[in-house]
Design a binder for these strands. Structure first.
Length: 561
RNA sequence: UGGCCCAUGGUGUAAUUGGCAACACUCCGGUUUUUGGUACCGUCAUUCAAGGUUCGAGUCCUUGUGGGCCAACCA
């Protein structure tokens, strides 16, 4: 058996190339560097799987590093949530790191920059500096403070650190080139004053390093060999390298930044800012609302880590703009859940069926297969009685041959039970069907082996015994946005495209075997879809989330007509 | 007036680095089925444009076109 050589994405090619040109494999080291200012979303999954996948592939350490240089936005809650999500996705980091662990080293290096004449304290307002910065098409001009003496810079920077100055009054800038075609090289700010308590260092510092200064140096301190980030940081690479030049020692690993395209997904947004807006505006109940494209939202919705990993693997890594269709994600959950989730019966939109020739008061416990895809899943028993619920959509008084379900005078198989025939129905004054009267064939019991039981009828319905069914709250979700790319319009706000009907709550009736299940348990409600038990669920009031529906060719046929 | 990046079916990615353009999803059609599910089979459909190099270009070069990013004391 030869294995087909797995094709590599361009990032993997880069690593392979480095190995081929002499980079020692044992020095390979990667990192996943989230800022703890929000929850991880499905887009982050790509980065997580890329970095940790590389680690697994090459047997290299991968650090989890929190990029916590802005105490105004970052919180411990996010740190905890991020760690949980990465673990849940199935990955183990080598070291848990924080950029804030390096504040002292970063500060010492900043002093060195000043001493080398490569950094200065600027005492202008941000507006003044913005003016001097120029535009992408026009060069900037030098700050009047650009040529302060080293001693003065040292003195001022020390006072910044001591907390002698107000926020915004001074910054430390790198002295590079105000005329560079790269705006980031026009004397970027490396430290700003922030009188804020930090989630880890508390009030020890009142100056905080900017991203560009902190990130590359953190990579260097951790001896990360490959630092992968999204495309919008491509212009930062020049600065990343410039900063590295100032501190780099021969013999150490020099980190290499490379960029890949972030993933966009249809009918949703993946930007922590926008997700935060959904949370704060109350459109969703929280970061883990099952409609959110966050890892925690997907987990609560019933997605499995395996399905997310498979999905990420399928969409790959590249550099071009993209919008990944959610149907691909849905395909992967169905694929996994189909293999692992037990089948049960639940009726979500009930109508009563009375089997008129079934003895009153009789109950039979019928044998039911838990999962046709997995023999080891075993069997269970479901109660059958004279009065049942079936789905309203499964009955019509009259219908053509294409309708395989129950109609007056027609027969249908009740899953795991008997063949029944609809004889009549009763309606209320508005014409709504209140009850369907059926007869059953006592010899047609599933699995009994009788001639009658082997009869083939076109339709098979799921059902529950009214007397035994457990009422449950069922939350049915639709996409959060009506537009495919809600945040792709320059002249319209993404909030305009909110789907106001993204959550529908119904009372469903589930078979009694579900009473013993726990939060997070996943099931296939036969003929309906995959559902799991929400964390709001209690033994008295069970709550289910619809993860995703089954593929529904019947619904497609309906749509076409 | 600038700089950087990108362009392969409807969608997302491949193509042994210059050698027969393929995989998955979607769509459509069919077979099987006590889930209109699953499984299986099949159909449609692809290299942005024009030049150039070459025996040979999706891949290299030039120009053009289209798109993205760059002017937070955010990351």
């Amino acid at each position: 058996m030869e294995e087909a050589p797995k094709s590599l994405n361009f990032i993997e090619h880069i690593v392979e190339e480095d190995l081929k040109t002499g980079f020692p494999k044992e020095k390979l080291r990667f990192r996943f560097p989230p800022e703890p200012n929000g929850y991880l979303h499905i887009g982050h999954a790509s980065s997580i799987c890329l970095n940790f996948g590389l680690g697994l592939n090459y047997d290299s350490p991968v650090n989890l590093r929190f990029d916590d240089t802005n105490p105004a936005k970052e919180e411990q809650e996010y740190v905890d949530a991020i760690k949980e999500d990465v673990r849940w996705l199935g990955y183990q980091w080598d070291k848990e790191c924080y950029a804030s662990d390096y504040f002292q080293q970063l500060y010492d290096w900043a002093i060195m920059l000043i001493n080398k004449g490569l950094a200065y304290v600027d005492s202008q307002s941000s507006e003044e500096m913005a003016k001097q910065k120029g535009t992408p098409t026009e060069p900037g001009t030098n700050s009047p403070f650009r040529n302060r003496s080293i001693t003065e810079n040292l003195e001022l920077f020390d006072k910044m650190k001591q907390g002698d100055f107000e926020e915004g009054s001074h910054v430390l800038r790198a002295k590079i080139d105000m005329k560079s075609s790269n705006m980031l090289m026009r004397d970027p700010i490396i430290y700003r004053i922030l009188h804020r308590a930090h989630h880890r260092t508390n009030t020890a510092w009142c100056i905080y390093p900017m991203y560009d200064w902190a990130h590359g140096e953190s990579d260097y301190i951790e001896q990360v060999s490959h630092s992968f980030c999204t495309l919008e940081f491509a212009m930062h690479r020049e600065l990343y390298d410039w900063f590295l030049d100032q501190v780099y020692d021969d013999g150490k690993v020099r980190p290499k930044q490379r960029e890949f395209a972030r993933r966009n997904f249809s009918h949703t947004v993946v930007s922590k800012r926008k997700l935060l807006q959904l949370v704060e505006s109350g459109i969703v109940t929280g970061w883990d609302d099952p409609r959110m494209p966050t890892i925690s939202g997907l987990r609560r919705r019933g997605y499995t880590a395996e399905s997310i990993r498979n999905f990420v693997d399928t969409i790959g890594i590249a550099k071009r703009d993209n919008v990944v269709d959610v149907s691909l994600l849905e395909f992967h959950v169905r694929e996994h859940l189909n293999k692992v989730s037990p089948r049960v019966m639940a009726v979500l939109n009930p109508v009563k069926v009375v089997i008129t020739n079934y003895p009153e008061g009789q109950v039979e416990w019928l044998d039911a297969e838990n999962n046709p895809e997995d023999e080891a899943a075993g069997n269970r028993e479901v109660p059958f009685s004279r009065e049942l619920f079936i789905e309203k959509e499964d009955f019509r008084e009259e219908a053509n041959k294409k309708f395989f379900r129950l109609k007056l005078g027609g027969e249908v198989r009740l899953k795991n039970g008997y063949i029944i025939k609809a004889e009549s129905c009763t309606k209320d004054t508005d014409g709504n069907i209140m009850e369907i009267q059926c007869t059953y064939d006592p010899k047609s019991k599933s699995g009994s082996g009788t001639e009658e039981s082997l009869r083939r009828v076109k339709g098979t319905l799921h059902w529950v015994s009214i007397e035994h069914a457990v009422p449950a709250e069922v939350r049915i979700y639709d996409r959060l946005f009506l537009d495919e790319t809600p945040d792709a319009y320059k002249d319209r706000d993404f909030m305009e495209f909110i789907n106001s009907n993204s959550l529908k709550t119904v009372t469903g009736y589930v078979e009694p075997s579900l009473k013993s299940s726990k939060v997070g348990d996943k099931f296939q409600f036969q003929r309906l879809g995959y559902f799991n038990i929400d964390l709001d669920s209690t033994p008295e009031n069970m709550v289910f989330n619809k993860t995703v529906g089954l593929r529904d060719t019947w619904a497609k046929m309906q749509k076409k007509n």
